[in-house]
């Protein structure tokens, strides 16, 4: 088990956003988390990344307790998040965005990963000297994912990578996610686009009102009546 979460709570002031979350991600898995807007999906990712402090329970990586580690320490351990809305360093160049992505790695590792990323997304190489803010939405999502890859993730957390993209680009993003999984990256994918996420996931979790209400394999969740009704619009 790469990531283990036990009875995790998170509070915003007096409001409890996460209620006793139990979940796990194994090495090499693609695990999807689906749920409605406001269910607490982003809060869970922020807690895993150490942006929000946990108010109860534990988070482990390789069995080591990291519940109280700072966000930068978690990045060094390989928990890398692509945040919702891409969050570019908009006025900085594409290349600088990538370099900052590899901030925690050595200079050699950075240049090596940069070549891999450019090979994977040639358009980023073409536009390496342009400001990130001038890229199209789809290119920005590629840059956001690439920036995370620069940190050499052991666990890649993706928050709504399809948000705000046209259907064609959504397909492209999901193809990229599958490619990364096939290359051996462990991925925890949070999506409102439940059908597409569960279709490519090994396992899935369904979240409602800050709690996990269903956990099963991706293919079984897709045919689950409750999921169909609530998230797939079927």
């Amino acid at each position: 088990m790469l990531l283990g979460i036990k009875e995790l709570d998170c509070h915003y002031g007096r409001i409890q956003a996460l209620h006793g979350i139990d979940m796990a991600v194994d090495e090499g898995e693609l695990v999807a988390l689906v749920g409605a807007n406001g269910a607490g999906k982003t809060t869970l990712l922020r807690t895993i990344s150490g942006i929000e402090p946990a108010s109860g329970g534990s988070i482990t990586l390789d069995g080591h307790d990291i519940t109280h580690y700072s966000s930068d320490k978690r990045v060094r351990l390989g928990i890398i998040q692509v945040p919702e809305g891409r969050q570019m360093f908009a006025p900085m160049t594409v290349e600088d965005n990538l370099m900052i992505g590899g901030y925690t790695r050595s200079g050699d590792e950075r240049s090596e990963t940069l070549e891999q990323v450019f090979a994977m997304f040639p358009v980023l190489k073409e536009r390496r000297h342009n400001a990130a803010g001038t890229l199209s939405g789809g290119q920005q999502q590629m840059l956001a994912i690439s920036r995370a890859l620069m940190a050499r993730p052991r666990l890649l957390l993706l928050d709504e990578p399809s948000m705000g993209l046209s259907p064609l680009l959504v397909d492209e993003v999901f193809a990229t996610i599958q490619k990364l999984r096939d290359a051996g990256t462990t991925i925890f994918l949070v999506e409102q686009n439940a059908y597409m996420a569960l279709a490519i996931a090994d396992r899935g979790y369904v979240m409602e009102a800050g709690a996990i209400v269903l956990a099963d394999s991706g293919e079984r969740l897709i045919v689950n009546d409750r999921v169909k009704e609530a998230y797939l619009g079927l």
Binding site: F89, A90, M92, D96, M99, Y103, T104
Partner: peptide
């Protein structure tokens, strides 16, 4: 320099900077 850029990045987007491992 990377550290200098990290400060600039933190100014532009503090959340993304933290997620990149900048303290």
């Amino acid at each position: 320099t990377l550290i200098g850029k990290a400060i600039v990045a933190s100014a532009h987007n503090p959340l993304a900077a933290r997620l990149a491992g900048i303290n």
